[in-house]
């Protein structure tokens, strides 16, 4: 569903993303993990075609995001690092506008806005101005916006930032439930989150991919002989340290 090959992005002479090659199959939920400045946001922006790549290619659902941007983008739902909301609009207005940008038919708009706002729990604030929402609600409206039109691929940049623990659990459950039907790639520097929501982990450090495997695979390779349960999440911290520190 997502095919990345030789993807490189340079800002002046600094490589923010350096020669990434990976493949994500339909229905997988992949966590993009890395320390601050590792290139997570840049990678996601390259996947959406928002940033042009210096080299390499990205194909989403079979379409090259740089050569056939409109076909590719129709299949992507994207939550940027900062939820892109217009202060002067109500939540309903914001969602309708985003749906129109995605080319949804007018007759379907109310039902679609209703569907995504229920999924993300913002149906109670549809008539509030986005500027007056708490950070958690802004984040959820951003996720609702990404879900509009039921895209094949969801690209979520730190989806649980700013949420309280209960909301975090809700969003996690939501993301897990999206897997299977949707292909999801999300970034996070919160390790437990990746462990709990994702089927695979891609670890980035200084723009390079230093690991890409299932959780079980990572554990087997880096902590041989250790048995780990999902409640015992410190293991990932340990693996993360092993992967990132040598660089």
């Amino acid at each position: 569903m997502i095919e990345v090959s030789g993807l490189t992005k340079r800002f002046r002479d600094r490589a923010a993303v350096d020669d990434l090659t990976f493949r994500i199959a339909r229905g997988e939920v992949v966590g993009l993990l890395g320390p601050n400045g590792a290139g997570k946001t840049t990678t996601l922006r390259l996947l959406t075609g928002f940033l042009p790549a210096t080299a390499g290619s990205v194909r989403v659902a079979g379409f090259d995001v740089f050569e056939e941007p409109r076909q590719a983008r129709r299949r992507i739902g994207y939550l940027p690092e900062v939820p892109p909301l217009y202060d002067a609009m109500t939540v309903r207005g914001q969602l309708r506008f985003a749906a129109e940008l995605k080319g949804l038919r007018r007759a379907l708009l109310p039902a679609e806005v209703d569907r995504v706002s229920r999924l993300t729990g913002v149906n109670g604030v549809l008539d509030r101005l986005t500027v007056n929402l708490s950070k958690g609600f802004r984040q959820r409206v951003g996720i609702a916006q990404a879900l509009l039109g039921d895209p094949d691929v969801l690209i979520l940049d730190e989806p649980t930032v700013g949420l309280d623990p209960i909301q975090i659990r809700e969003v996690r459950d939501l993301i897990r439930s999206l897997g299977g039907r949707h292909t999801v790639i999300l970034s996070s520097h919160v390790l437990p989150e990746v462990a709990m929501t994702c089927s695979k982990v891609l670890v980035l450090n200084a723009g390079r991919m230093v690991g890409f495997d299932t959780l079980d695979g990572l554990i087997a390779r880096h902590l041989p002989g250790r048995t780990v349960t999902l409640d015992d999440i410190a293991f990932l911290e340990e693996i993360f340290g092993k992967l990132v520190i040598p660089a």
């Binding site: 129709r74 985003a98 940008l101």
Partner: peptide
């Protein structure tokens, strides 16, 4: 970013 990642 919303405008530039929309299929327009």
């Amino acid at each position: 970013e919303l405008l530039m990642t929309a299929p327009i």
